[in-house]
Computed example of a mutant assay.
Amino acid sequence: MSRISVLVVDDSATMRSLIAATLRRDTDIEVVGFANDPLEARDAIKRLNPDVVTLDVEMPNMDGLTFLEKIMRLRPTPVVMVSTLTQAGAEVTLAALEIGAVDCVGKPGAGVTAAEAFGDLAMKVKAAARARVRPLGSAPVVEKREGYSGGDKIVAIGSSTGGVEALLTVISAFPENCPPTVITQHMPATFTKSFAQRLDRASAAHVTEAVEGAPLETGRVYLAPGGHTHLEITSGAHPRCRLVPADPVNGHRPSVDVMFNSAAKHGPRVVAALLTGMGRDGAQGLLALKEKGARTIGQDEASCVVYGMPRAAFELGAVEKQLPLGRIGPAILDLCSAAAPGRDQ
């Protein structure tokens, strides 16, 4: 099998060298070229036809977002963004993921070595090479559901690679009185606050980062903060968010499996969905939920950026029904509706 070809685009020669050195340690990857700015990158993409582009956010002659838009409109190619781990960098990177970048990594900075910052870069590049990239403007059509009447259900959603677009699509379908919802998305700590704000602007529901002890309330969506904790929900009639310091699970912190396993205590009260993502995180947890009587949904292969986590769950028998992305939000509300208990999608 041929190696994955990568074009590295960054205005810093030092950063280009660091990225290339990191990727060349993986024998499945070949760095085929470099570009200092988008103008050079445009010609290099035409000449080299790389499988994946790593793209800096801030560059001369044309910023990374503008160039990414041109790539996704004219020549859709898997892109991994390389961003400074700052608040401004987080907001720009989230915008890039919305436009169509497959994933992101943070640059080395104060107290962060290149080995730490780029530890999973090769893995993300290989996942990007397998990803489905769609032309800009081809976002999924979201089905609207009228007449949601509320109930006592809890919603749990897990996602990873491709999850920014997927979660925006699902949560934008939620009404102001949506069921209490917890989300774990694999994302650096610097990004989750900005992402919660972006979800909040896209939805009639109120979306925030989860905090320790927050009660799960109607109309509220709680996003697991990135960093050193996993998001769990407590047992009992009035569950709360719990942030648990612990080692990574399945290589992730926060982990979808940890959140799903904590939700399994609520059994039939839970409606859970596992969206696009690389790997297996969430598959075992979704199975535990299903075995406890929860309703479970998996995103289908055709609408996933990376059909990894939903595939693993489907193969375990954890998925009650697979659905395209645009139907998942309304289906969750159907299953949660007090007016239609047990109604199928």
Score class of each variant (00 low, 15 high):
10 D>E: 12
15 M>T: 12
16 R>M: 04
16 R>I: 09
18 L>H: 01
21 A>D: 15
28 D>P: 06
31 V>L: 06
33 G>V: 03
33 G>F: 03
35 A>I: 13
36 N>A: 13
37 D>E: 13
39 L>S: 13
40 E>M: 15
40 E>R: 15
45 I>Y: 03
46 K>E: 15
48 L>K: 00
55 L>A: 11
62 M>Y: 06
63 D>F: 08
65 L>S: 08
67 F>A: 01
69 E>T: 11
71 I>K: 05
73 R>M: 13
76 P>E: 09
79 V>W: 01
81 M>R: 02
81 M>F: 05
82 V>P: 05
92 V>L: 12
94 L>W: 04
95 A>T: 14
96 A>M: 07
96 A>D: 03
96 A>V: 01
101 A>E: 03
102 V>M: 10
103 D>T: 13
107 K>F: 00
108 P>I: 08
110 A>P: 05
111 G>C: 09
116 E>C: 04
119 G>W: 10
120 D>A: 14
120 D>P: 10
121 L>C: 09
121 L>E: 03
128 A>G: 08
129 A>F: 11
131 A>F: 08
133 V>S: 09
144 K>E: 15
145 R>Y: 14
145 R>C: 12
151 G>H: 07
154 I>C: 09
154 I>D: 07
155 V>Y: 02
156 A>L: 06
161 T>I: 14
162 G>E: 10
162 G>T: 01
163 G>N: 03
171 I>H: 08
173 A>E: 08
174 F>I: 11
176 E>F: 06
187 M>L: 15
188 P>G: 03
190 T>W: 06
191 F>D: 05
193 K>Y: 06
194 S>M: 13
195 F>N: 08
195 F>D: 04
202 A>P: 04
209 E>Y: 07
210 A>R: 03
210 A>V: 06
213 G>R: 05
215 P>H: 01
219 G>E: 08
220 R>M: 15
220 R>T: 02
223 L>G: 10
231 L>S: 09
233 I>M: 05
234 T>V: 10
235 S>H: 09
241 C>Y: 08
242 R>A: 14
248 P>L: 00
249 V>R: 02
257 D>L: 00
258 V>C: 04
261 N>E: 14
262 S>Y: 04
263 A>T: 05
268 P>S: 12
270 V>Y: 04
279 G>A: 13
280 R>E: 15
280 R>M: 14
281 D>V: 06
282 G>W: 07
284 Q>W: 01
284 Q>A: 12
286 L>V: 06
288 A>E: 10
288 A>L: 08
294 A>W: 03
295 R>Y: 14
300 D>I: 07
310 P>Y: 03
311 R>I: 01
315 E>V: 02
318 A>I: 00
324 P>E: 09
329 G>I: 10
329 G>V: 06
335 L>G: 12
339 A>S: 15
339 A>W: 05
342 G>W: 09
342 G>Q: 12
